[in-house]
C-alpha cells in the first residue's frame, strides 16, 4: 500500500510554475526525504499534498483516498519559522494542539489529552519544559516541541518541513531516533531535508525534486551522483564529487 500517491500534480504561484507534472508514490513505512535545491518546490510539494495551496492540476491520494477523507491519518510539522513564538502560550499547550484534530470542533482537551501530550513531550526529552512559555525556548527546543505536537497527532503518515534545519546536534539525533521509531511502527515519514551529507544515513527512500521529480525510489538506486547532478545542475560540483566518493563506498560495502 502506498502512503502517498501523487499523480500529475502541477502547482503555480501566479506566473511561476512551482511544481510540474509531479508523479510520486511513497510506500507505507518508509523514511522518505524530499531533496532538491532552493526553489525546487519541496515545501510546496508538502503543502500541495496537504491541500494547503491550490493546485492547477493533478490528484493526491493518502492511503488510497483523497486527503479530505484521510485527515485523521495525517500529521504535519510546518517550518519552525512559520509561527509566532511570542504567542502567549506554554509548551504543553502547543503539544496539546496536536490532539485538536481528533477532538473535532468545540470539544476541549481533557485529562487523557494532557497525559498524552506530556508523554509526547517526554519522548522528545522536553518533559521538564511543559510549563515554559514557548518564547523562552532555543531553536532546537522549539523544533522538538513541534515534533512532540506531531506525535500527539498519532498519525499514520507524517509530513515534516525541514525539521532538522538549524538545530543543535542533540536535537537532530532526538528527531532522527523519534522518526526511526515511528517508521519501525509502520508509519510513514515524508521529510523535506536540506542536508545532502546526512540524507543517506537518515533515510531509506528519496525523492529528488527540482520543479519536476528527477528521481524517486529506494536510497541505494536513487541517490546517485548522476541523479544529484540532474537535480542540482552544474552548481553543485563539489557536493557531487563528494557523493561519487559516497557511491564508491557504497559499492565497496556491497562487495
Amino acid at each position: 500500500m502506498n502512503a502517498l500517491d501523487i499523480h500529475d500534480l502541477t502547482v503555480s504561484y501566479r506566473d511561476k510554475v512551482a511544481l510540474q507534472d509531479v508523479d510520486l508514490a511513497i510506500p507505507a513505512g518508509k523514511l522518505a526525504a524530499i531533496i532538491g535545491p532552493n526553489g525546487a518546490g519541496k515545501s510546496t510539494l508538502l503543502k500541495a499534498a496537504l491541500g494547503l495551496v491550490p493546485t492547477v492540476a493533478g490528484s493526491v491520494l493518502i492511503y488510497g483516498q483523497p486527503y479530505a477523507k484521510q485527515r485523521h491519518l495525517v500529521g504535519y510539522v510546518p517550518q519552525r519559522s512559520s509561527v509566532d513564538w511570542d504567542f502567549p502560550t506554554t509548551v504543553l499547550d502547543v503539544v496539546l494542539m496536536g490532539t485538536y484534530g481528533r477532538l473535532g470542533w468545540i470539544r476541549r482537551p481533557g485529562r487523557a489529552e494532557r497525559d498524552r501530550a506530556l508523554a509526547c513531550l517526554d519522548q522528545v526529552g522536553m518533559a521538564d519544559y511543559a510549563d515554559r512559555q514557548i518564547g523562552q525556548l532555543s531553536g532546537g527546543q522549539q523544533q522538538r516541541v513541534f515534533l512532540a505536537r506531531a506525535l500527539a497527532q498519532d498519525a499514520s503518515v507524517y509530513f515534516l518541513d525541514e525539521p532538522m534545519a538549524g538545530v543543535d546536534a542533540v536535537t537532530e539525533q532526538t528527531i532522527l531516533s523519534v522518526l526511526q521509531d515511528l517508521a519501525r511502527q509502520g508509519r510513514t515519514i515524508i521529510c523535506v531535508h536540506h542536508d545532502l551529507d546526512s540524507a543517506p544515513q537518515y533515510f531509506d527512500w528519496v525523492v529528488l525534486l527540482n520543479v519536476r521529480v528527477i528521481a524517486s525510489g529506494p536510497l541505494a538506486t536513487t541517490f546517485t551522483a548522476d541523479n544529484l547532478r540532474k537535480t542540482y545542475g552544474g552548481s553543485m560540483r563539489a557536493a557531487i564529487a563528494h557523493f561519487q566518493h559516497f557511491e564508491e563506498e557504497l559499492e565497496q560495502a556491497k562487495r
Partner: peptide, 22 residues
C-alpha cells in the same frame, strides 16, 4: 468560550488548523 480552542489554533498556526480540518 465555545471556539477558544479553534481560535487559538488558527491564530497560532493556521496551517496546522487547515490540515486538521478547522
Amino acid at each position: 468560550t465555545l471556539f477558544y480552542k479553534e481560535l487559538k489554533l488558527a491564530t497560532f498556526d493556521p496551517e496546522l488548523a487547515a490540515v486538521m480540518g478547522f
